[in-house]
Design a protein around this nucleic acid. Structure first.
Length: 834
RNA sequence: GCCGGCGUGGUGGAACAGGUAGACACAGGGGACUUAAAAUCCCCCGGCAUUGCGCCAUACGGGUUCGAUUCCCGUCGCCGGUACCA
């Protein structure tokens, strides 16, 4: 009988649809396991082969957990608000809600086609008012707790599209879509005070119960960017003192100037005192015109203007130094004013060199005529620094800090790179922010019993010329009355960013139909926290940080009972496509040269990111059609180390199909006998151990290799039905459709009354894993000279005696003395001769 | 620049509390079965020497060790994140 994957997969998918073997039961007595994958954005292009990698891995983990007796929650949903859908809708003149509905239907079809064991009764869709009701509710709680506020701040403004862009939409200083320059524009925006949680977001990462891969923790910490330094106050010749922030207070004696950011409000106040005001004002205006890109990434050339008439006094030595305005000082970090220590900070060195400012050495160890000496370790000794002279930098920092505190002009200060979260988007396809502006009462929340505040239907959802959300044109909707005083008032027309809906969706899966709370206490206490969350590296900073922040807030207001949302976080690597311009494909030297000339370093890579323009996109539909879902699942796991990038290969897929064919054909060869055969016992038990452990460690590629090895053994040794039964159970999480069909055909379904996926996971017996003899390596002076077969656990004398019988070994030992013998039990013996 | 990570056959990749490098697979070669092809089954497959009994091989150069892909120091190259954060 042939392995007819198409018919088999359709048959079993239908059966699972009807019998719902993947339903999660809240409150069940079995131990719970909540396995989560990042829900997809339902794009018009459909599922990409990148999706099945994490989805299949988590599906396998969850299937094994079910067989091990766990009550498993393995949910799926759709992160459906956002720009791509809105842009698609604008281009094709279809309402975003219709586009979304179609895309979700297509994704659902594809996900079911791949045989995932999702609980389809718990699907979450972020654009469903029943869902965003609670997204809005959480926002209101944040507002009530002082975590949401509105403020004016610069945003990215596309000069051609005339609209506000998210940072991700600005690529190298121009608009991602139209290529026009992007400038900064002041706009009033809703903000979330994530900075208030900065310390907890860092410190809780070190909790022992939190199992995140190391690079994720590091990235979170770097993003928050906590640094401990000192704030130092300098007196000036004006009525205002200035304060600077520094992490190198030890270098205070090396200060030769100070710099103020062009946006600093003090400049305006000092206008009458600044003798070259015209020059300064011109510099300010020029800086404001520059995009962040010009100011930062592109151009590190230092510019600036000296403030004529302003002088400041270094509190450490009483010396008077000048002040400059320069855009290398950021208003948003520290105090917006820095002290210039050109001897020991490269940026300051560049600036001082350009403006002819003196450079003073206060830490010995470098050559400050060539570059700044910035080392912070013990190699530098303090000089030209009064009472600090002779100390190392490490000693000088606390000494100076202590002195500054005593003198009353300095104190320790912690700073963060993390800024508050810009939460407004002037776009249509997002959750309306449920706030009302009243001239008398200010910002008033929409009463909770009026939630959800449904996104109104508009005629045009294109961005408006003035940069306001398209909803602002809906005067019927915008004009309302103040819930507080009843006076005429206006609704907020900004919507939330795409990050909003994804910040708490994992909670909704626990209790998806609740209409009183985002999640009931009962469901959350049973299912929380997520036991295992896998997602892409591209989400390890923002999404992870945002959702951890929301979760901590919900913890504070008593909605959830854990401090962290996810107990364990892993990440998968991207799937790359074959590079059509790879030099390796070239037949002749000339062709090679031509490719390198045309595509540069791109031509040197065998695999690159899939893209339509390169024509290397693989569609899961095509793979499933040609080889079946089980082959697709197997291949995407076999492709390589789960955490690393991997290149798709059409050829290699065939190998996985061949393997499944070989498994299928074993049905004809299995001899009677319900037990695991004695001959195969060591192989079977080793395979059980390997597959069990590898799934837990996310090493799905070697788990599959172990199954392939087992099948090869069966072909070599023959097998019983009992051997085949063990193989079917081990393969069931990987190739569920085929295994269920085999389970039925071999009579196990009738005998047990269960599907294979409902059987207990096989247990291995350590005692049955080893044969009676073992092959050991024999080394002479550390070099392999032969192998011997000896009884398991043989003593040294036995192994050595046997080893010396080996002709080759004997030759290398001949005429020499064995001075030492190293034995690694059942593995090798190393003879040291002289 | 800074912070992570990685460099193993023609290819994807195994093996790292130091212990037979190249599991498993793809591509390639040979054979069996076929009128033939596909499919299937069996064998070979790092390099150089030789016709098996040797030498060299885990980016490169050192070190520790009986023994290093694995640990340490240095160099080169690639990938990801981040970037005038004082």
């Amino acid at each position: 009988m042939k392995y007819d994957f198409a018919a088999i997969e359709t048959k079993w998918q239908k059966k699972w649809e009807q019998t719902k073997p993947y339903a999660a039961v809240t409150g069940d007595k079995r131990p719970k396991f909540y396995g989560l994958i990042e829900f997809p954005y339902p794009s018009a292009a459909g599922l990409h082969v990148g999706h099945p990698r994490p989805f299949t891995a988590m599906d396998i983990i969850c299937r094994k957990k079910r067989m091990q007796g766990y009550n498993v929650l393995n949910p799926i949903g759709f992160d459906a608000f956002g720009l791509p859908t809105e842009n698609f809708a604008i281009k094709n003149h279809i309402h975003p809600s219709i586009v979304t509905k179609q895309n979700i239907e297509n994704f659902t079809r594809q996900l079911k086609m791949l045989g995932y064991g999702f609980d389809w009764d718990r699907v979450v869709d972020t654009t469903d008012p029943k869902y965003y009701h609670w997204t809005q509710w959480i926002f209101l709680q944040m507002f009530k707790h002082g975590l949401a506020y509105k403020t004016t701040m610069p945003v990215n403004w596309c000069t051609s599209c005339k609209c506000v862009l998210a940072n991700e939409e600005v690529v190298e200083g121009v608009c991602e879509r139209c290529g026009a320059p992007v400038i900064r524009k002041e706009k009033s925006q809703w903000m979330l005070r994530i900075t208030k949680y900065a310390d907890r977001l860092i410190d809780d990462l070190d909790d022992e119960s939190l199992d995140y891969i190391e690079r994720v923790k590091t990235q979170q910490k770097n993003w928050i960017g906590r640094s401990t330094g000192t704030e130092v106050t300098f007196k000036t010749n004006t009525e205002d003192d200035i304060t600077v922030y520094t992490t190198r207070v030890d270098t205070l004696f090396g200060v030769t100037y100070t710099v103020i950011s062009p946006e600093h409000p003090l400049l305006k106040k000092w206008q009458p005192l600044i003798r070259n005001w015209d020059e300064v004002a011109a510099y300010q205006a020029a800086a404001a015109r520059k995009s962040d890109f010009e100011r930062g990434e592109l151009n590190h050339d230092k510019t600036g203007v000296r403030l004529s008439g302003i002088e400041v006094v270094n509190p450490a030595n009483g010396k008077t130094v000048p002040m400059f305005v320069s855009d290398y000082v950021l208003m948003g970090y520290g105090t917006g004013i820095v002290m210039g220590v050109p001897g020991h900070d490269q940026r300051d060195w560049d600036f001082a060199t350009k403006f002819g400012i003196p450079i003073v050495e206060v830490v010995q160890g470098g050559d400050i005529t060539k570059e700044a000496f910035t080392l912070k370790d013990d190699t530098g000794i303090m000089v030209n620094s009064g009472f600090l002279n002779g100390m190392t930098v490490k000693e000088a920092i606390p000494a100076m800090k202590k002195y500054a505190v005593e003198q009353g002009w300095g104190h320790e200060k912690v700073n963060y790179k993390l800024r508050d979260w810009v939460f407004s988007r002037q776009r249509y396809w997002g959750e309306p922010i449920p706030m009302i502006w009243c001239e008398k009462c200010g910002w008033v929340p929409v009463p909770e019993d009026q939630l959800p505040l449904v996104l109104p239907q508009v005629e045009s959802y294109e961005p408006t010329d003035d940069g306001e959300s398209p909803i602002s044109k809906m005067t019927d909707w915008v004009n309302t009355t103040c819930p507080c005083c009843g006076a005429p008032a206006k609704r907020e027309t900004d919507t939330m960013p795409q990050w909003a809906g994804s910040s708490w969706y994992y909670l909704r899966y626990m209790d998806p139909h609740d209409d009183k709370l985002p999640v009931s206490r009962e469901a959350e206490e049973y299912w929380g926290p997520v036991d295992w969350y896998n997602g892409g590296m591209e989400h390890t900073t923002l999404h992870l940080l945002y959702s951890r922040f929301w979760h901590k807030f919900l913890y504070d207001i008593g909605v959830v009972h854990t401090k962290e949302p996810y107990a364990k976080r892993t990440s998968h690597g991207m799937i790359l496509g074959q590079n059509p311009h790879y030099v390796g494909n070239a037949k002749t030297e000339e062709e090679k040269q031509a490719l390198i000339e045309k595509y540069g370093s791109q031509a040197l890579r065998p695999a690159v990111k899939m893209s339509k323009s390169l024509g290397n996109v693989v569609n899961p539909d095509d793979v499933v059609k040609a080889y079946g879902a089980d082959t697709m699942r197997l291949y995407i796991m076999f492709i390589g180390d789960f955490e690393k990038v991997a290149a798709w290969s059409d050829d290699a897929v065939k190998g996985c199909k061949r393997f499944l064919d070989r498994v299928w054909n074993l049905m004809d060869q299995a001899a009677d006998g319900d037990e695991i055969s004695e001959k195969n016992a060591p192989s079977v038990h080793k395979a059980i151990k390997k597959v069990t452990e590898d799934i837990d460690e996310l090493k799905l590629n070697t788990a599959i290799a172990a199954l392939m090895t087992l099948v090869n053994e069966f072909y070599a040794n023959g097998l019983t039905k009992g051997d085949l039964e063990a193989l079917m159970l081990l393969l069931s999480p990987f190739a569920p459709h085929m295994v269920e069909e085999m389970w039925e055909l071999t009579g196990y379904a009738a005998k047990t009354g269960k599907m294979a996926m409902q059987m207990p996971w096989p247990e291995f017996d350590e005692g049955k894993m080893t044969a009676s003899t073992v092959e050991m390596a024999v080394q002479v002076l550390g070099k392999l000279r032969g192998t011997v077969t000896v009884p398991v656990d043989s003593e040294q004398e036995v192994v050595v005696a046997e080893a010396l019988k080996n002709e080759k070994v004997a030759r290398f030992v001949e005429g020499k003395q064995i001075v030492k013998t190293i034995l690694v039990k059942n593995k090798l013996v190393n003879l040291i001769v002289k």
